[in-house]
């Protein structure tokens, strides 16, 4: 597990221990990867972050159009692995969590401890204001590359 900011470590470690998740990615909605567990290649993180942020943006827009407010999360069930994708509010802005898990755990367990992690992150987050750059395509790529460099040392 690697995290860009130390206050993310404890909540994420607890989540990983309790949920038995195989892969986890925490990122801002502008694509900056905050922490990752289980990914061995920066390319995978880059792809997952881009896809995850895109899916969340699409479903949130769909929710807005249909008057559903906000979807709480999205689960894809697979035979061997499943995936939870959920956005949540933090004092540092809106973040996205992407979790891949197998049959050794359940979506209920993952969701339960994901929600617990969100509470812990909200409580632990430093209160200074997050930078509020507009979420443009070039910002997304720049921030993503910067965070990958920090996480993988490349």
């Amino acid at each position: 597990m690697k995290a860009l900011e130390p206050w993310v470590v404890d909540p994420l470690e607890t989540f990983l221990a309790e949920s038995a998740a195989r892969l986890t990615l925490l990122m801002t909605s502008s694509g900056q990867v905050v922490a990752q567990h289980g990914f061995s290649r920066s390319l995978d993180v880059m792809t997952a972050a881009a896809l995850g942020a895109g899916i969340v943006a699409s479903t949130e827009e769909l929710a807005r159009l249909t008057g559903a407010g906000r979807f709480e999360g999205l689960v894809h069930n697979g035979q061997r692995q499943s995936c939870l994708l959920a956005a949540f509010a933090t004092p540092r802005g809106r973040w996205i969590g992407l979790v891949v898990f197998g049959p050794e755990t359940s979506v209920g367990i993952v969701r339960l401890f994901f929600d617990q992690m969100v509470h812990q992150l909200v409580a632990a987050a430093p209160r200074e204001l997050a930078p509020s750059a507009p979420m443009l395509a070039e910002n997304f790529e720049t921030e993503l590359n910067a965070s990958l460099k920090a996480l993988f040392g490349r």
């Binding site: 755990t105 359940s106 209920g108 367990i109 969701r111 339960l112 929600d115």
Partner: peptide, 10 residues
């Protein structure tokens, strides 16, 4: 209920 379902199911 969410916690009961997750923990009891497991």
């Amino acid at each position: 209920g969410q916690a009961v379902a997750a923990l009891a199911g497991s």
